[in-house]
């Protein structure tokens, strides 16, 4: 599992007992960020009426996220557009950069996805309380449920609400890690079976690489759309 190892690059930085050194994980975050900036920079450099290819890409991305937000969270979620856009594009680029050989997949680390998920969870909860006050607790009391079942349902709802950050983070992390591990295993088979038997796992490897690219996109999309759904719960309380 060498590909998931984090190691320090450059000097050791320690602030109040925490080791905050620049690592290869940070390096690949920076690389992803630079790639995003380059795409958006070239995508918005020209203001052509008939867009160039790269301009079209940024506009398609914009329209894609815009449609996703308006479909799932409605018009009230407009102020959070930039956040969802950044989230989607950052996770997408981290996943895609991770697909390159010898690179590091930032999102295959639970701490990264958990940071995102906890931030979203706390943010959405605060937002819900700011907008609806204590009525936001109604989210745990679905309407139209018989009184007898209400305590059980409420408990289930509370558990499901609290497990949101875990499910959100583990989904992305496990998908990325499992995909890369599988690629690694099949790659190992290719080497060990040699030139005679290695073709079958190699074929699998190629197919899996395609699948992994799909998963990389899909998981970024799922992460973004779940964020939208949580935002929708906080913005439009209709349970």
């Amino acid at each position: 599992m060498h590909q998931f190892k984090v190691h320090r690059i450059g000097p050791e930085i320690e602030i109040s007992g925490f080791d905050l050194s620049f690592t290869n994980s940070s390096l690949f975050m920076v690389i992803s960020a630079i790639l995003i900036m380059l795409l958006l920079l070239f995508g918005t450099r020209e203001k052509r009426l008939i867009p160039s290819k790269i301009q079209l890409m940024s506009e398609i991305l914009y329209n894609f996220i815009s449609k996703m937000i308006s479909d799932t969270a409605g018009k009230k979620a407009k102020p959070y557009f930039s956040f969802v856009f950044s989230l989607f594009i950052f996770i997408l680029f981290c996943n895609m950069v991770g697909m390159l050989p010898y690179s590091f997949t930032v999102t295959s680390h639970i701490i990264v996805t958990l940071t995102f998920a906890i931030f979203i969870f706390i943010g959405v909860t605060i937002l819900g309380f700011i907008i609806h006050g204590f009525k936001y607790l109604k989210i745990f009391v679905p309407s139209g449920v018989p009184m007898v079942l209400l305590p059980i349902i409420s408990i289930i709802e509370i558990i499901s609400y609290l497990s949101r950050p875990i499910s959100l983070s583990v989904r992305l992390f496990a998908n990325m890690m499992a995909g890369h591990t599988m690629l690694k295993v099949f790659g190992g088979f290719v080497i060990s079976l040699g030139i005679i038997g290695g073709w079958l796992p190699l074929t699998f490897s190629v197919a899996l690489t395609g699948l992994e690219i799909l998963v990389a996109f899909l998981q970024a999309y799922v992460f973004a759309i779940l964020t939208c759904i949580y935002l929708n719960d906080a913005l439009n309380l209709h349970h």
């Binding site: 080791d19 905050l20 620049f22 994980s25 975050m29 920076v30 995003i36 594009i89 990264v112 940071t115």
Partner: peptide, 18 residues
């Protein structure tokens, strides 16, 4: 060992991007 570092750099880089 590097959780704090990853979270720290993630917050910095993601905030910049955002």
């Amino acid at each position: 060992k590097y959780w704090a570092s990853q979270a720290f750099w993630l917050i910095i880089i993601f905030s910049t991007i955002y």
